Simulated assay, not measured.
Amino acid sequence: MEQQLKSELTQQVILDKAFDIFYKNGFESTTVAMVMEATKLSKGAFYHHFTNKKELVLAVIAQKVKKRIYDSMILPLYTDGDVPEVLKHVFSNRIRSFSEAEKRSGCPANNLINEIGDTEPAYQIALRKIIDEWKAALVALLEKGKRSGNIKNNINSDAVAIYLIGAFEGVRGLRKLYHNDEIFEDYLSAVNTYITQLS
C-alpha cells in the first residue's frame, strides 16, 4: 500500500511538472529530459510511469487540462437559477480569475489544440473529449433554459454552445497576443450582450 501511494505521488509530480513546462514552453520544445530535470527524478522513474512523451501528453490532457476546464467552466453550469445569468456568471468569473501568468500564457487546452491538435489522432480524441463535454454541459443548460422560459425556444443550442466556447478560447489567444486587459473587458461586454439576447 505504501509503495502504491509513493508511485501515485511520483506520477502526480511528473504530471504537475510536465503540465507547467508544456504550458510555459509548448509541447514541441519540451523534452522528457526537461521534465525529469524539473522533477529531480531519474529517467527510470519516468519510464516506470510513462512509456514515452506521447503517453505523458495524453495523461496531462486527461488529468490536468480536463480538470481545469471541468472545475471552472463545466461544473458551474450544473446549477439552478436564471440561465442567462448563470452563463454570464460562469464566463465572467473565469475571465476575472486569471492570474497574470495565465493571461500571458493563454489557455492550456487551446495552446495544445493549436500546436498539436492535428498532428496525432490520439491527441485529437483526447482534446475533443474535453470540448465535447463542455459543449454538452452548455447545451443541457440552454435546453433547461428553454423549458423554464428564460431562453428563446427557437435558438440552436448546439450553435450557441460552439459560439460561446469559440469566443472564450479566441479571446484567451487575443489577450495573450496583446497583453492588454481591455481585450477581456470588451469580450465580456459583447458576450454578456449576446447572452442577454438569448432570453
Rank of each mutant, 00 (worst) to 15 (best):
E55D: 13
Y23V: 03
L164V: 06
A101P: 05
S148T: 08
M34F: 04
A33K: 12
I116Y: 01
I21M: 02
A126E: 03
E182D: 14
E85C: 15
A38Y: 03
D186W: 11
A140M: 03
K40M: 10
F168M: 12
A126Y: 00
K40R: 13
K43L: 10
A161G: 03
G81A: 12
L58C: 04
E8Y: 05
D118Q: 14
R68E: 13
H179P: 00
C107Y: 02
K152V: 00
A137G: 09
H48V: 08
H48R: 15
M34T: 05
A167I: 10
T31D: 02
E100F: 09
E133V: 01
A45Y: 04
S199V: 08
K146W: 00
L75Q: 14
K146S: 00
H49D: 06
V83C: 07
S157I: 01
K64R: 12
G117H: 02
F19A: 03
M34S: 06
H89T: 15
Y178T: 11
R94L: 11
L142D: 01
T79A: 15
I131M: 04
T196W: 05
G170H: 05
Y178S: 11
Q4R: 10
K40I: 06
L56W: 01
S92M: 14
E55Y: 05
V35C: 03
A101I: 12
S72G: 13
K135V: 06
F27P: 02
Q4H: 09
E100P: 09
I183D: 03
K6C: 11
T193K: 15
D82G: 10
I21C: 00
V13A: 14
L15I: 01
M36Y: 04
I14R: 00
L177A: 15
T196E: 14
N93F: 12
K43W: 07
Q3F: 06
C107Q: 05
T30I: 01
G166K: 02
A33N: 08
S189W: 14
Y178R: 15
